[in-house]
């Protein structure tokens, strides 16, 4: 169980402070693939940063903390305070494929060992790395190459290999397949699913692509304007959604054989700079009533394990 306890994360800018994550309070089950979806700027990536513990200026955690659900080297439960010590051993991160996350001028095998502290026996670790890389359908020699000698898909496989080599409890993946073509994208997603099945770690998977979420995830977390609006089993969220925003997101997905013109979600999310009263989605919501504009809905468990922050969850 990863507990997000009342998280508020703030960016300090020249205009002032803005809360990109504004009061998230939820417990995520361990050993599942959890998809995080929402529009650009809704706080998905910020939430990942907060969970990873990468809190550097201008981002700061104004309140709350994360309890990771595993005990650390000192026998106490790991929280936001000491998560940095477990980076890549217990919690790892797979970046976007479009970002060139490999140093172009040093060999990949160097980049595999330069974060492992005082490597006593480099040859032994490299042999293990080679073995592991081969198990991920990559030639073992790939780690002797420089990044520019590999294809985009191979590079992303290397990133997956780095992120999973230590069998971490939690893996954060921030749009890991965005810049890849669909065939390669599928193979990377299958790889992630296989790894998760074997190691039973928790994967937090951020993507814009609702289709990918549908295929990959066990649980879905929908964010809107720095808040969680819905959380539950993926199947329930996609088929019997309890929030009008999720409904609009999934309705915009095309299905084969259906040639109706798809409607996107009209309107724009509110600016986080404004003072927000009531439900943040109210202005775009077809179900909005007076109560929505005045009172902020709480994230409630409407059905077992299915949470929604909507006054009219029963009407969706």
């Amino acid at each position: 169980m990863i507990k997000l306890n009342n998280l508020v994360a703030t960016y300090t800018t020249e205009r002032g402070q803005v809360n990109a994550v504004d009061g998230i309070n939820i417990a995520l089950p361990s050993g599942k693939i959890i998809g995080i979806a929402g529009e650009s700027g809704c706080g998905k990536s910020t939430l990942l940063k907060v969970i990873y513990g990468d809190l550097i200026y201008p981002l700061a955690l104004t309140s709350g903390n994360v309890e990771y659900g595993f005990t650390g080297d000192r026998g106490t439960e790991v929280t936001t305070r000491d998560i940095k010590e477990y980076w890549f051993r217990r919690i790892s991160y797979i970046p976007q494929a479009s970002m060139s996350s490999l140093n172009p001028v040093i060999r990949i095998r160097r980049q595999f060992v330069d974060f492992q502290g005082n490597v006593v026996d480099e040859a032994k670790i490299l042999a293990e790395v080679r073995e592991y890389v081969r198990s991920l359908d990559l030639p073992a020699e790939a780690i002797d190459a420089y990044p520019h000698q590999l294809s985009g898909g191979m590079r992303q496989r290397i990133m997956v290999a780095m992120g999973t080599f230590f069998k971490p409890d939690i893996i954060l993946a921030d749009e890991p397949t965005t810049a890849l073509d669909v065939v390669v994208q599928k193979s990377i997603l299958m790889l992630l699913m296989d790894i998760q099945e074997q190691m039973e770690n928790t994967i937090l998977f951020v993507s814009h692509d609702m289709g990918v979420h549908y295929q990959l995830t066990h649980k879905m977390l929908i964010m809107y304007a720095a808040k969680v609006v819905e959380f539950g089993d993926s199947e329930d969220v996609f088929s019997t959604s309890l929030h009008p925003y999720t409904k609009m997101l999934t309705d915009s997905l095309p299905t084969i054989g259906d040639d109706h013109i798809r409607e996107g979600v009209s309107g724009r999310p509110p600016s986080l700079w404004d003072e927000l009263v009531g439900c943040r989605f109210a202005a775009r919501c077809p179900l909005a009533t007076e109560i929505c504009r005045q009172q902020e809905p709480a994230l409630l468990e409407h059905k077992p394990g299915h949470f929604s922050a909507c006054h009219h969850a029963d009407q969706v």
């Binding site: 990873y52 990468d54 970046p95 330069d114 974060f115």
Partner: peptide, 11 residues
């Protein structure tokens, strides 16, 4: 990106 990633690796 590679510098950010190296930092996140704990290099």
């Amino acid at each position: 990106g590679y510098v950010t990633f190296a930092r996140l690796k704990g290099t």
